Amino acid sequence: MRILLVGASGTIGRLVYDTLRERGHDVVTVGRSSGDVRCDVTDPVQVEELWSKVGEIDAVVSTAGHVRYAPLAELTSDDFAAAFADKALAQINLVRTGLEHLAPKGSFTLISGIPSRDPVVSGAAAAAVNGAIEAFARAAAIEIAPRRINVISPSVLEESLEAFGDFFPGFEPVAGAEVARAFVKSVEGAATGQILALP
């Protein structure tokens, strides 16, 4: 398959890239400052232009998106707006603009995270954004068939415990390799409208 991978330079993105390549896929990477194609996916104009550069794709995979973790009393309207723009709206726009460039039986795989189903202190923005992504995917799945869409929703990564572990006390971390396998399951499988929660 020819797969567009957004966020290939991140911790999850690098693992997904390596795993997809090992399975024989042609992976086209997209990033703000690195990758085969440069594109800021938070900019709707650049996302529209992205498709003219890459042509038809068999699958779109997104591992990108940043959200601020802070106590609710410290989160501003701008923090929430930035979180939605960077993680939710960017992925929604990839789907919305990418439909006509995706193979007839192609797929989208987006990323959310555990705060949508198991909230943590300082994770209100993450919970809201991840929940929005998951709700969007379930709704989109009933409209885009036979194209498919799923969301990977991992717990805190083992590889990211030093940076984010304090936000997830007592949570079972998940290995990046397991998250990468979930992306493979979404891309190569037949499911749609699913939230693949890890663990």
Rank of each mutant, 00 (worst) to 15 (best):
A190E: 15
G193L: 04
A137R: 04
E159L: 02
F136V: 09
G189S: 10
I152S: 04
A190H: 13
P154Y: 08
K185N: 10
L157M: 11
A197S: 15
F167Y: 14
I144T: 05
R148F: 06
R181H: 12
A197C: 13
A137C: 11
L196Q: 08
A197K: 15
S153W: 06
A141V: 08
L196R: 10
S153Q: 06
L196F: 12
E162R: 13
A140G: 07
E162V: 14
F168D: 01
A180F: 00
K185G: 02
V184K: 01
S160L: 12
P154H: 08
V184Q: 01
F171E: 13
F167M: 09
I142F: 10
Q194W: 02
A175I: 02
A182L: 06
F136L: 13
A140Y: 02
A163S: 14
L198C: 08
K185H: 14
A175C: 02
P146I: 09
F183I: 00
D166S: 15
S186L: 02
A191F: 03
I142E: 13
I149A: 02
K185Q: 15
V156Q: 03
E143F: 10
P199C: 11
L198T: 05
I144E: 01
A163W: 11
E172G: 12
S186R: 01
I152T: 10
G189V: 07
A137G: 08
A180N: 03
I152Y: 03
F171V: 14
A137W: 04
I142P: 00
R138M: 13
L161S: 03
V151N: 09
P146H: 08
A135Y: 04
I152L: 10
V174E: 05
I152P: 07
E162C: 02
V151C: 10
P146L: 12
A182W: 02
F183A: 00
A175W: 01
V184C: 09
E178L: 13
G165R: 00
R147F: 06
G170E: 04
V151P: 03
R147I: 05
L196I: 15
R181T: 12
D166F: 12
A139F: 09
S153V: 09
V179R: 00
R181L: 14
A175L: 11
D166M: 10
A145E: 14
E143K: 13
G170P: 03
I152N: 05
P199L: 11
P169L: 07
A135P: 07
L157G: 07
A191P: 00
Q194H: 11
P199I: 13
A163M: 13
A141Q: 05
I149K: 05
P173A: 09
V174F: 07
A135G: 14
Q194C: 08
I144Q: 03
G170Q: 05
R148C: 06
Q194L: 05
A190R: 14
A139I: 06
A197V: 15
A177Q: 12
F171T: 13
S160I: 00
F136D: 08
E159A: 14
A141I: 06
T192C: 04
P154K: 04
E172P: 09
A180M: 05
V151S: 11
I152F: 05
P146R: 11
V174W: 02
G170C: 07
F171G: 07
